[in-house]
Amino acid sequence: MPKIEAGSVREHRAQRLARLIDAAEALLDEGGVEALTAGAVAARAGIARNSIYRYFDSIDDLLELVVSREFPAWTQAVEQAIAAETTPEAQAAAYVRANLEQAARGTHGWRAALSRGSLSPSARERVRSLHTSLREALARVVRELGRPQPELTVAVLQAVVDACIRRIDQGDELTTVSDFAEDATHRLLAPTTGQDFPGHT
């Protein structure tokens, strides 16, 4: 049995995979996708080149791991924010706020750019499915409101989140963007009547 560097084989594999992803991120930061080769990743991580493919099948798979690395923690943060609230309206606002807080941590912008420009179509689709699963948390909250057009409501709220994340990626202050997004969320979810819409008869 090969020597392991942790208390268990599982921990050993997790630590090595983390080193490989760290190495890939450093190479991407220094030289872009062109710098990401098997030899360079192995050398940076201090792992034999013939061993790295025990952890991923190709450089494209490694790119996908880089792009999706923060997704479990992001999802957990959003779900915890939702669970901390007791009404659907507050939970929807928590979904919006938590997503923006995660985006403001500083790495979303370049990961998103990498996803758009460097992943294979199949990898891009798998990353898209992760985002779809996250949006299901919002869909559940909106369905609890019991109002008409729940799918449209989810689409509009997600559009607010996506637009505000882009503003954060461009350098806008989190507090300013988050306040705007939460206000927009509350306005969208506030009970309305036909008289609230100009021209409605």
Rank of each mutant, 00 (worst) to 15 (best):
D22P: 02
A26V: 05
T86F: 09
E64W: 00
I4M: 08
A123S: 15
F71V: 13
D60H: 03
A73S: 06
D196A: 11
G109I: 05
L157G: 05
P88Q: 09
I47T: 04
D183W: 05
A83Q: 05
L152M: 06
D29I: 01
H200K: 04
R116K: 14
P148G: 04
W110M: 02
L17Q: 15
N50V: 09
D29T: 08
L36K: 03
E101Y: 04
R124N: 05
L62P: 02
P198Y: 14
L20E: 11
Y95H: 10
D179N: 12
L63Q: 02
A40Q: 11
D29R: 13
R49A: 12
I168H: 15
R49F: 13
S58D: 10
T192E: 11
L119E: 00
S68H: 00
R19Q: 12
D60I: 01
A190Y: 15
W110F: 07
A26L: 07
R19L: 11
A112R: 03
A137K: 04
V154P: 10
T193E: 15
A104C: 03
A139N: 09
V9N: 06
F56L: 12
D196L: 05
L145R: 14
S8F: 10
R49P: 09
R111W: 06
I47N: 05
T193H: 15
I59M: 01
L28F: 00
R49T: 10
S129L: 12
A38S: 14
A45D: 10
E89S: 07
D172A: 14
G171T: 02
A45S: 09
A35H: 02
A139V: 08
A190E: 15
G31N: 04
A184R: 14
A112P: 01
E25Q: 10
L152S: 06
V66Q: 00
R126Q: 08
E79C: 06
V67Q: 00
D183V: 13
V177Q: 00
T107Q: 10
A26H: 03
A159C: 12
A123C: 09
A45N: 11
E64F: 00
L152W: 01
L145T: 13
I165K: 06
E182Q: 12
A104R: 02
I52K: 01
A155H: 13
V156S: 06
A48L: 13
R111P: 07
S133C: 07
R126G: 03
E25Y: 07
E85R: 15
L174M: 12
R124Y: 02
E125A: 10
V96C: 05
N99A: 03
A98Y: 09
F71R: 06
I4L: 09
R167V: 03
R97P: 08
N99F: 03
I4T: 08
D61L: 03
V67N: 00
A26Q: 10
R124W: 02
L189A: 06
Q15S: 10
A73Q: 06
A24D: 05
G194I: 11
D183S: 11
A123H: 08
A14Q: 14
E144C: 08
R126C: 02
R128I: 04
G31H: 03
